[in-house]
Write a protein that binds this DNA or RNA. Sequence first.
DNA 1: TTCCCTGATATGTCTAGGCATATTATGATT
DNA 2: AATCATAATATGCCTAGACATATCAGGGAA
Lengths: 248, 248
Amino acid sequence: MTALEPLKPTDSGALPRYREIYDALRQKIVSGAWPAGHKLPSEHELARTFGCARMTISKALGALAEQRLITRRRRAGTTVSAPRPQESVLEIHDIEAELVAAGSTYDYECLDRQVRPANADDASALGVTAGTPVLSLIGLHRADGRPHAFEERLINLRAVPEARRERFSRTSPGRWLLQRIPWTDAEHQICALNADAAIARRLEIPRHKACLSIERNTWLDEQRITHVRLIYPCDQHRLIARFRHQRA
Amino acid sequence: MTALEPLKPTDSGALPRYREIYDALRQKIVSGAWPAGHKLPSEHELARTFGCARMTISKALGALAEQRLITRRRRAGTTVSAPRPQESVLEIHDIEAELVAAGSTYDYECLDRQVRPANADDASALGVTAGTPVLSLIGLHRADGRPHAFEERLINLRAVPEARRERFSRTSPGRWLLQRIPWTDAEHQICALNADAAIARRLEIPRHKACLSIERNTWLDEQRITHVRLIYPCDQHRLIARFRHQRA
DNA sequence: TTCCCTGATATGTCTAGGCATATTATGATT
DNA sequence: AATCATAATATGCCTAGACATATCAGGGAA
């Protein structure tokens, strides 16, 4: 827990002042010199230490608070936050874009297409009342001609009536929706499962082979747009998530 | 593309001014009134429109830029960003905290512990040069007495020398590290796999049962701290990721 | 034309104050 | 001792300016 030093008068001038201060304070925290719960000097005091206006300190502290590294409370002052459960940013890409970027050819084949009033399963998966018209699609994504992912999808035709006219025989519904329909929220659930007979046949893999299942629900404000479940053989897909350091 | 209205003089005073401005501008963008590429009025102009100082406008724009909803460039001005590929926030919790929160009992059992110079496998997994001293730990997490997750971990003893003295016979190394060692970056890789004989025996599941594998690498700035691989039976773990609407 | 110089412009950062508000500490009253 | 009013304090938000800097538009020279 060493003392703060006033920064050199930024002769090189590469970084803005508030950024230098941000970095200096951040270093104290991530290095452990200021452990969780440690009370920082007041803004006035920091302004004196660093030789700048309080507003500049406030900006640096604001950025640290944004990153959840510190907690600021009026009168109570500023303290180092406790680490909070890990939280990563997971990018989930469009299958087609991903494959094309990797230099593979891509195509989509429709295996089944039905328009029907939502049955009980549909209703619970899509979160609509039974009887709502839905479009059910089952399809296969291929990379270089070989099966890559199996897709089961439900589209809420009340939210996306124009999907009723679409055949989806070669264009993947994911891409079609992404380009046309705005949406505000999404939720993903990721789990592992053993391929059952139907999946094994479609993906041309042995029965019981491990697969990664990604389920996605999409909303436009309060309205449900679509529910999709993608199943990848274990050796063909891998999610990568990168962390941004945050604390609560 | 309707005109901006000066906000009412915040009679209720619930939200700070910059937040109201942030919300007003954000509404223009997410509603589509200002499409991607649209040029926003200059800060001076916005300050006149909203009847406040330019600094206040700048703060609102700064927050929008942070959310990647707009792009700001000197002289060129501020424009609405293009939507970017889906990005979800994935929370990966501490196993113990998760189980205790769910009302289960938790314990950890150490199955193997070795201090050794990094061999080729260690070196590539942990990203250190061969010969660097590492602590290798293999352990089992139990929930209500039943196996819940299998853990293989490597700790860089050059980064965390104090781990050498720790037995880790009952305390999980994850928790120990999380509480003691600061870190700045992490990366997760998630995939599915079939249980091999060793994993099946440890987790008391049939061979070939699908499992979810989560690998995590942790850094403190440039230095590698630890590499861990957690394997969960498919019916015992599920990751959930929620989306935050962002643009680039 | 092409290239470079120059001025105009919009954002980036900063200052030195101000009032507002939440919270804690203190002191007075019951 | 317990409760409540009050003052002190630290952050939160704001202003009205300032200079710095990146970039664009225009004009003049090769």
